[in-house]
Write a protein that binds this DNA or RNA. Structure first.
Lengths: 159, 159
DNA sequence: TCCCTGTGGTTGATGTGTCATCAACAGCGT
DNA sequence: ACGCTGTTGATGACACATCAACCACAGGGA
């Protein structure tokens, strides 16, 4: 028996945690559904395309993209294959490194993201920011950043 | 051309939104991984089992469970099948309604959730609540609840 | 030159989520 | 009795994520 008697959550914490879990699940579901309905893109597709519109030439090394999105390389590869098949992006050789590859946005992909972005932003505003006061927006940012720090910190309580 | 020129996000909003998206993705990934490593349960399994420990008899009608978890009935059905195969739960006939069915937690299921819960709660505390001040916890609750209201409200701006 | 290790990237198996569709049945009106 | 309608649940096809194995090349030594 390795009985850890954990520090259970108190009422306030439980309330926050339950609300957060529900909100998070419902919000992403809704954002995904609306994006899909408006533009035939999934949230994942959207993220990929956004990252490909920034850099000059609209192309990135594959693992560079994976790092930015925080995806596993395998997930990245599978997803890119599907997007290639749909004509949103294409693979390009990397002359400087024989094993490497670029992935680049196609005109069709650019058209897709440019059509999708305004509606998506509008959705985010309607579902999230319209509901929040400026103070709440700041609080959300701070809480998120604080938790991100916590996640990055190497602390993993040794067993 | 239905050119909506959307109200783009300002800097503060962008900062909040980006941080929230990253946080949300990384946090659930991490919670899932640790839960799985500690207990052979996915977050979804955990949720199902939690809901089955509350009611007397540890059993619920299937759609009742789906409603509480906010899952589609099809997802529910698939997931239950897998959990039955693993011996965590079992289906039981409903005498009152010939087509209906109960789903109930098995002793093995109860053992699994009781073993998993303390560590999981500890993880949540370590990754989330240890990082936040009491004010921030309240703010998180309020923001989440506010967004949930917004999601439930029937407003769907007509095109 | 040859091997060796690390890195970039793909592939296939498996588990999981979503959607559309189907079958069984209850409740209700005729 | 009959058909309608809504509910409950199962199933098959497909999108997606994760894991482990793998291939191809780069950059070293020996």
């Amino acid at each position: 028996m390795d009985d850890i008697d954990p520090r259970w959550l108190d009422d306030t914490e439980q309330r926050a945690w339950r609300a957060f879990l529900r909100m998070q699940a419902q919000l992403t579901a809704r954002l995904g559904r609306e994006l899909q309905a408006d533009s035939e893109l999934s949230l994942a597709d959207y993220d990929v395309l956004v990252h490909l519109t920034d850099p000059a030439g609209g192309r990135l090394r594959i693992l560079e993209l994976a790092r930015e999105l925080d995806w596993e390389k395998s997930r990245m590869s599978h997803h890119l294959s599907r997007m290639v098949k749909r004509g949103l992006i294409c693979r390009e050789e990397c002359p400087a490194d024989g094993r490497g590859a670029f992935i680049a946005i196609t005109p069709a992909g650019r058209a897709a993201i440019e059509a999708a972005a305004p509606r998506h932003v509008e959705t985010v505003r309607r579902l999230v920011f319209d509901a929040l006061s400026p103070d709440q927006v700041s609080a959300l940012a701070e809480v998120s950043e604080r938790i991100l720090e916590q996640l990055d910190s190497p602390c993993r309580t040794p067993v």
